[in-house]
Write a protein that binds this DNA or RNA. Structure first.
Length: 938
RNA sequence: GCCUCGGUGGCGGAACUGGUAGACGCGCUGGAUUCAAAAUCCAGUUCUUUCGGGAGUGUGGGUUCGAUUCCCACCCGAGGUACCA
């Protein structure tokens, strides 16, 4: 019998699905282990070979952990709300729910073919009402909470109201909008309900406000900061401009410090942690108040260098600030206004592309230096951003390069406060030790760190400033002007948002007959006829009934893509619970994800937002841990290898790759499926593939047409997509799984090359042959030879270590070496093959199941115990062991064969020469590597 | 510019604490088997050589008995970020 992978794989996939083999239980005497993949967005294009890379790795680990005796949770689901389904709906009128369903079915089919051990009974889909009910429920919790900075946690907004009633807000330390007014208890109690609600909105963790947003005209929606790349939309690449709009936001800034601190406690890649740190962007400094000459107003600036306060020679404000209008003098009015309009019109991209151009206008106003009382000219300039700090900077040209350039450009005076430095060409930005301050009154002679402390203390004492920490992280905009997302469970009464009662959830997406925004610019939900809330009946009713008494209009925006993905990992623990988002029992059993696998592109989006929600739900006591993923691994992308044919300029002649030198050709991509494993093109197929090639003439070399190759991102438009179904047909899922792992380290990006498949495929065939010596399954019951045992145990050791280190590529090398050795030893002993089958099961599960059942086992191999290695079989027969002590000693001696590491250690320590060298010192560690060198570490 | 990671044969990539660089696979070369092909198996494959050897892990230095590995400077590539005060 030959290795019939198609039959075997089908058989075991059916077996697993029929027996629900991988269903996890929510309690067990075994230790728990939770392996999670980032769930996919089911796109219409289906999967290509790059997608399952992470799923294969996590599946190997999950299966390995099951063998090791863990109760493993390994779920999968779909992030099924999103833009492409909606755009498809706009084009075709087909409801996104239908396309989504179709795509999911296709995904499921493809995933099933690869033999994943997912527990599908826990599947989640973010677009299902049973799921988004809880996304809405979390939204309402956020709406009903504020962040208490004293206790450093989120609490119910009703606690805040109690404090307002008692003491007003003057002494309350809570995260709120910058423009929140101060009031006393008496004030509060005299406020109207409407006014009270307006104030509370400034404290709620999700709130509505007029904000400057990233507006994308072409897409008709606003975008979050992490959805913008180079000033263009991440999806589609459309230009993005700034616009003021009323929007829902999440007060993620309240959690900035905890999000930063939490990174220390989790085992995530350093690069990813660093990205999050940069995104949060903590900087320590001071807020300094400057009075404006002849005005009541005070300008507050944030600076990280208060020590350079005496070097301030001017001040710059962001042009968008309201204050600019107030303080501008009559003479400068015109110039300022034209500058302000000009900057408002520039798109984000324009502004970024000419960073080097210095522009700005003098306002005619002067600020008073808080320490010297000198008059300082106030300028506006677009290098100052309204959204960071206070939107105003104190300019110290001698210590900051931008200030220096600005001052030089506009001929503003520069004062050097650093002794013994040369600032004739550029600013002195170093804050290292050695340079002392001068011309700085009481700071004279001090260095950076001392001056910082002294000046902050002085500012605080005189009331002209205070030490502060500032974060770059801005509140996350939460509304999207889209149809295919979670409805926000809010209705509007007297212009203010009111939550619908949480026991009325889910608030289901209404039917609309047009998925585009309405003619007056309202989001697509504005097209719904039945989208009003009846507070008496507590249900959705017809818009025509809106009376502003009992029936009110519902929110038209929907939630962004990251809403549903910010908590799904908790839902898997208890996916079918209809009473809670996850039960206390389930979450206290599974607690958190032990291993999370996904791409690093989510570093500043999903992976930050989800940590935020986790911390919030933890604060309210719904979850037992503050960080939801203990360990995270980023899998690298699999790149495509595009195929090129070369058209001779101006002709229909296409030259084979070897013939293009010296000829003027244009390379054109062809579909990689039209090229065989030796890079030879199927010319007839190309002619049929696209009409532009119908009349093509192909010029061969050595009788074939060879294509050129180039490594690029795998994508449909580059015709370099390789379909996993095709690979499963040709080589089998087990070969695909092993080959994807063999390609290289998981974290690394690496190019796909189908030709390499034959290597791992023939490994499986060889292994099959071992157990089928004369084409029939037959194993010897005799005791295996010492060589075979050594081979087996070497493999067990290497494979085990490599799995633990997620080094799956070297694991597969070990398997290959093992089978090559066993083949040359003609070993078909049951005592070797049986443990090897278990060892291989995580990688090639169908293959192993088949051998396992041929071995006469009734139960699935999933329950087989992972083999242990025996050290005594591992010592190589080697003559020479050079021994060194801390790199200072070296000699060679003979050792007899087949000793354990322990025995070798004893021999070395009893050796006269070793004793002499050690000279009474105790070695800390003796490292024995078979066939290699022995190190004695002192 | 800044931050992070990386640079090893024709290619993907090995080399654990410094200890025989190039494991394993692809490709290539030769051979066996076959009427032939597929499949399979065996041998070879860093470069160079006067067949003794010599050179070699981006470049140049350093530490060390010994460096792909550690230190310094530089070059190149990938990803992130960008007037962040």
């Amino acid at each position: 019998m030959r290795y019939n992978f198609l039959e075997i794989e089908k058989k075991w996939q059916n077996y697993w699905s029929k027996n629900q083999t991988f269903q996890a239980i929510n309690n067990s005497s075994k230790p728990k282990y939770y392996v999670l993949d980032m769930f996919p967005y089911p796109s219409g294009a289906g999967l290509h070979v790059g997608h399952p890379l992470g799923y294969i790795a996590s599946d190997i680990y999950a299966r390995y952990k099951r063998h090791k005796g863990f109760n493993v949770l390994h779920p999968q689901g779909y992030d099924s709300f999103g833009l492409p389904a909606e755009q498809y709906a706009i084009q075709t009128g087909q409801h996104p729910a239908i396309t989504t369903e179709t795509n999911i079915n296709r995904y499921r089919e493809q995933l099933d073919r690869m033999g994943f051990s997912f527990d599908w009974s826990r599947e989640v889909r973010t677009s299902k009402p049973e799921y988004y009910k809880w996304t809405q429920w979390i939204f309402l919790l956020l709406f009903d909470s504020y962040y208490d900075k004293k206790e450093d946690k989120s609490k119910s907004i009703s606690d805040l109201v109690i404090q307002f009633e008692k003491d007003g807000n003057e002494f309350i330390l809570a995260e709120c909008d910058a423009d929140t007014p101060l009031f006393t208890a008496d004030n509060w109690n005299s406020f109207s309900a409407n006014k009270k609600e307006q104030i509370l909105l400034k404290y709620r963790l999700t709130y509505i406000s007029e904000t400057e947003v990233n507006w994308c005209e072409e897409m008709g929606t606003i975008l979050a900061n992490d959805e913008i790349v180079n000033g263009m939309s991440e999806r589609g690449g459309y230009p993005v401009t700034k616009k003021k709009m009323k929007q829902w936001s999440m007060r993620i800034g309240a959690y900035a410090e905890r999000l930063l601190q939490g990174l220390e406690t989790i085992d995530w890649p350093d690069s990813l942690k660093e990205m999050q740190r940069n995104w949060i962007g903590k900087s320590t400094g001071a807020l300094v108040k400057f009075k404006v000459k002849g005005h009541e107003d005070v300008i507050e600036v944030f600076t990280t260098r208060p020590d350079t306060l005496y070097g301030v020679t001017f001040m710059t404000l962001a042009p968008e600030l309201d204050l600019v209008q107030k303080i501008t003098s009559e003479q400068q009015k015109e110039a300022v206004n034209s500058y302000v309009t000009q900057t408002a019109q520039r798109s984000e991209r324009d502004r970024m592309s000419d960073v080097k151009t210095i522009s700005g206008v003098f306002t005619g106003a002067y600020a008073i230096h808080p320490l010297t009382d000198e008059e300082i000219p106030i300028w506006i300039g677009d290098y100052v951003l309204a959204g960071y700090g206070t939107g105003a900077v104190m300019a110290v040209p001698c210590g900051d390069q931008r200030d220096y350039d600005f001052a030089t450009h506009f001929n503003i005076s520069i004062k050097n406060i650093f002794s013994e430095t040369d600032i004739s060409k550029e600013a002195y930005t170093d804050k290292g030790a050695g340079v002392k301050l001068q011309d700085s009154d009481f700071l004279n002679g001090m260095e950076y760190s001392e001056a910082m402390k002294v000046v902050i203390k002085y500012l605080e004492e005189t009331g002209s400033g205070k030490g502060t920490i500032n974060y770059r992280l801005r509140d996350a905009i939460f509304s999207r002007q889209r149809y295919w997302g979670e409805p926000i469970p809010i209705y509007y009464k007297e212009g203010l948002p009111v939550p619908i009662p949480s026991d009325c959830l889910p608030l289901e997406l209404p039917q609309v007959d047009n998925y585009l925004p309405t003619s007056d610019g309202a989001p697509p939900l504005g097209n719904a006829n039945k989208w009003a809330w009846d507070i008496k009946k507590n249900q959705v009713v017809d818009n025509s009934l809106i009376d502003q008494v009992n029936i009110f209009p519902l929110e038209l925006n929907t939630m962004p893509g990251w809403a549903g993905s910010s908590w799904y990992f908790n839902r898997y623990m208890d996916a079918s619970n209809t009473a809670e988002f996850v039960s206390k029992e389930a979450v206290s059993y599974w607690k958190e994800v032990d291993l999370y696998l996904g791409g690093s592109e989510h570093a500043t989006g999903h992976l930050l937002y989800s940590r935020f929600w986790q911390k919030f739900l933890f604060d309210l006591g719904f979850l037992p841990v503050e960080e939801y993923a203990k360990k995270l691994i980023n899998q690298g992308m699999i790149l495509g290898s595009s195929a090129f044919i070369y058209r001779k300029k101006g002709t229909q002649e296409y030259l084979s790759k070897g013939l293009i030198e010296g000829v003027e050709v244009e390379p054109i991509r062809v579909d990689v499926s039209l090229v065989n494993l030796s890079d030879e093109l199927d010319c007839e197929a190309v002619k049929k593939w696209q009409s532009q090639f119908e009349k093509a003439t192909f010029i061969y070399e050595n009788g074939v047409y060879k294509v050129g190759r180039e490594v690029e991102k795998m994508s449909k438009s580059k015709y370099n997509v390789v379909n996993p179904d095709q690979i499963c047909d040709d080589f089998g899922a087990d070969t695909l799984r092993m080959y994807e792992m063999f390609l290289g380290p998981i974290e690394q990006a690496k190019p796909w090359n189908t030709a390499g498949m034959s290597g791992v495929h023939s490994f499986l065939k060889k292994m099959w042959k071992l157990s089928h010596p004369e084409n029939d399954f037959s194993l010897s019951d005799e005791a295996p030879s010492p060589e075979s045992l050594k081979t087996l145990h070497q493999t067990i050791k290497k494979v085990t270590e490599d799995i633990e280190n997620f080094s799956f590529n070297t694991c597969i090398s070990a398997f290959m070496i093992c089978v090559n050795e066993l083949s040359s030893q003609k070993c078909n002993h049951k005592l070797i093959i049986e443990p090897l089958t278990v060892l291989l099961a995580p990688f090639a599960p169908h293959f192993s199941e088949e051998i396992w059942s041929l071995l006469g086992h009734d139960e699935s191999i999933v329950y087989a115990e992972y083999p242990m290695y025996e050290e005594k079989y591992l010592i190589e027969s080697t003559k020479n062991y050079p021994v060194s002590f801390n790199g200072k000693m070296r000699f060679t001696r003979e050792l007899s064969l087949d000793l354990t590491a322990k025995e070798i250690e004893e021999i070395i320590l009893s050796d006269e020469q070793t004793k002499k060298h050690l000279d009474g010192r105790q070695p800390k560690k003796i490292i024995v590597v078979p066939g290699k060198i022995i190190n004695i570490v002192g």
